[in-house]
Design a protein around this nucleic acid. Structure first.
Ligand SMILES: NC(=O)c1ccc[n+]([C@@H]2O[C@H](COP(=O)([O-])OP(=O)(O)OC[C@H]3O[C@@H](n4cnc5c(N)ncnc54)[C@H](O)[C@@H]3O)[C@@H](O)[C@H]2O)c1
Ligand SMILES: NC(=O)c1ccc[n+]([C@@H]2O[C@H](COP(=O)([O-])OP(=O)(O)OC[C@H]3O[C@@H](n4cnc5c(N)ncnc54)[C@H](O)[C@@H]3O)[C@@H](O)[C@H]2O)c1
Lengths: 219, 219
DNA sequence: AGGAGTTTGTGAACGTGAGAACAAAACGCT
DNA sequence: AGCGTTTTGTTCTCACGTTCACAAACTCCT
């Protein structure tokens, strides 16, 4: 296939992809403040990065600024949203409705960023009667049905570490190809499935390392 | 000052620091399986990395393996723990005991990795009567007292975005120099204070980006 | 219209990280 | 004791990411 749109299929560096959502959020904040045009310097400050890096990042998407002026906030916001898939609605399932799963189910940030929780699943039958945040909790066995019904591509794992691999396997079998994993374990998944992990302990340990160095340095 | 210990103050690359906790966890798992010696290949597989990378990472700490044999699991575990400050006890405070704060307070992974929750704080006076996970919730104004009493260096922010910056400021004033931030906002802190952020929305958006690419690619 | 002043987009230099490859070191077997 | 086998520690090379610096492009003012 040849290029469908003028610049639709270049690949964006991973580091840039990770920052685009930050820019998006900064742009939303600017809109809320009634600002309709901004320079790379202003946006970079709001996003907590260097302005050169910001401009380079944006240059991977295309040329959406105006020299001597800056960026149109709404226009740039739309372009970034389109690039990272924020203009469409992503159905999401959460597996494991314990302490963390409850918090996630109640998290408003899902909806506002284009993610819709279409299923809460738990292996505990006692759980599968309650409903959280207005969404009924269903037995884990319903995963394939729910995933198929809504065309779910993204799954969140919030079960204990020992159960995480088997949940991941079930998700893959159900056609889910992107997993966000909160369990402190390395998941094994087939080629083509993306996994990202959020690991609280690791974050704290990294902070502790630097904290320890500060203490040693100041001897 | 000259070097106090033979190799105590080289600086370890940031990417390596982020992986050391993963290795540590893998080593604990091996111990639990009764394995006392392992090769870099085995450990790398357990940690989900390349064995060359693992060996290079470990070489920054020192020479703790035996050629032709491998690594002594307990010994290596101790060395990594010492390096990242896991042999000492880090007092931690959590500010914002809402949905997420509750889950964090109940999280067992703190304790088991050398972190001790010494304070739960919330601005809501109604909150400041209950107790979560056996720890009483105290008014936010008590932060300086609690931080001073326990020598807290690490703080966790789990308040809404609008309140996060003011909480961070208060933490810095209270002598906290490492912050783990769950609020979706860029924090402004003075030099010398470390901030790490955990941002669920960003993780999902990164997954969505790749998901979208997969869909386009398979046109 | 033209020139001064801004701000973008990008090429080039620099720094950091990943992985292949191999010499050095330890072990076990004869 | 010596030789082959195993596995570490390290060197070298390449890829990726960051930052600088500046030409190109636009606006505004006279
Ligand atoms: N609580 C936190 O703040 C926190 C923070 C970081 C990471 N984590 C991790 O997140 C995970 C969940 O933590 P939690 O505190 O919510 O635990 P939890 O025990 O409160 O909840 C786990 C839930 O998963 C369900 N479950 C167990 N096995 C299952 C299976 N095979 N299929 C479906 N559901 C299953 C259980 O019924 C339970 O409701 C753990 O791996 C934990 O390490 C938690
Ligand atoms: N719930 C989730 O799963 C989730 C996931 C990712 C990120 N987050 C983020 O974490 C933060 C908390 O989320 P939540 O769902 O727990 O919200 P929440 O509204 O349930 O809880 C917030 C708590 O913070 C307290 N608070 C408000 N202002 C305060 C202040 N100035 N000082 C001290 N305490 C204060 C409130 O009294 C409340 O108890 C938010 O920024 C949210 O975006 C939440």
């Amino acid at each position: 296939m040849t290029a469908r749109s003028s610049d639709g299929n270049r690949d964006i560096p991973e580091a840039t992809v990770a920052r685009l959502p930050v820019y998006l959020r900064a742009l939303v904040a600017l809109t809320d403040q009634g600002i309709s045009v901004c320079s790379s310097e202003e946006l970079a400050t709001a996003a907590g990065v260097n302005s050169a890096k910001l401009r380079k990042d944006l240059s991977y998407l295309g040329s959406y600024g105006t020299r001597g002026v800056g960026y149109d906030v709404d226009y740039l916001r739309y372009q970034i949203a389109r690039e990272i898939g924020g203009t469409q609605d992503w159905p999401v399932v959460i597996v494991g409705i314990g302490n963390l799963g409850h918090a996630l189910a109640n998290f408003s940030g899902f909806r506002s960023r284009g993610f819709r929780v279409v299923g809460l699943l738990d292996a505990d039958p006692a759980m599968a009667e309650a409903s959280v945040a207005g969404i009924p909790v269903r037995p884990f066995a319903d995963l394939p049905a729910i995933a198929a019904e809504h065309g779910v591509a993204i799954g969140v794992i919030a079960v204990p570490a020992v159960a995480a691999q088997s949940v991941a396997d079930a998700m893959v079998d159900a056609g889910i190809s992107s997993i966000l994993n909160f369990a402190p374990i390395v998941l094994n998944v087939p080629e083509g499935v993306d996994v990202r992990k959020v690991d609280l302990s690791i974050e704290l340990q990294i902070l502790a390392y630097h904290e320890q160095r500060k203490a040693v340095q100041a001897l």
